[in-house]
């Protein structure tokens, strides 16, 4: 068994170049603010998902609520669906970033219930949200109208816990979206060599 120079050099080069690494998975994070659901989709911290399709489903019934496309910053927003909130259901959001890249995020019913409607500002969409095919063309309008009609701030006492929960889930999402570190890379390489070593040892004992 002999180490060959070229593959070893190749691996060393790749390992060094991996400092410029990025995660080749798509990440999605969503939070509710001012009666608007904000969705952020990224491949890594510095690489937003542009023109990715975001599908929004009722988490309990799996019915499609709305869908839309992320902008240049990987963002997409839509008003909190009144139907889901009234029914006490959460939302399941799926990002489809093409080439088989997909991930999902769930907004719990409690987070929707704690959202604070603040009139017009909350109901405007940042990007082009389209109604779900089966929901009809009036879905977005209905949601906007519902948000417009929503009561003014009445539960300011809920703001701080909601913000704390948002910060916590955001921190969790950012941790999940972090690029692989040197620890994971080293662990993977060590596992490969350990596996090769174990197989070699087993083979040698058999002979």
């Amino acid at each position: 068994m002999r180490l060959n120079a070229m593959p070893a050099l190749c691996m060393l080069f790749l390992l060094c170049a991996a400092q410029e690494a990025w995660a080749h998975r798509v990440n999605i994070f969503a939070w509710v603010e001012n009666n608007v659901v904000n969705v952020e989709c990224r491949f890594s911290k510095t690489s937003p998902v542009r023109s990715g399709t975001v599908l929004v489903y009722d988490a309990a019934t799996e019915a499609e609520v709305t869908r839309g496309t992320t902008d240049e910053q990987g963002l997409f927003s839509f008003p909190v669906p009144e139907q889901a909130r009234a029914a006490g259901h959460g939302l399941r959001l799926i990002i489809k970033a093409g080439e088989g890249h997909q991930n999902d995020w769930t907004i719990e019913a409690a987070e929707l219930a704690a959202a604070q409607p603040e009139g017009k500002a909350g109901a405007e969409q940042k990007t082009t949200a389209q109604p779900a095919p089966q929901a009809g063309a009036s879905t977005s309008t209905d949601q906007s109208a519902a948000a417009h009609a929503a009561p003014a701030p009445k539960a300011a006492e809920n703001t701080q816990p909601a913000q704390a929960a948002h910060a916590r889930t955001r921190a969790e999402a950012e941790a999940a979206a972090a690029d692989p570190g040197i620890k994971e890379i080293a662990l993977g390489i060590a596992a490969l060599f350990a596996l090769a070593g174990i197989v070699s040892l087993i083979r040698r004992r058999r002979v």
Binding site: M1, A18, P180, I185, I189, F193, A196
Partner: peptide, 17 residues
């Protein structure tokens, strides 16, 4: 096997570039 492991490691790290 070690050559295989080295090339497998190159593949493992290559997708990070």
């Amino acid at each position: 096997l070690m050559t295989v492991a080295i090339l497998s490691a190159a593949f493992f790290v290559g997708s990070l570039i």
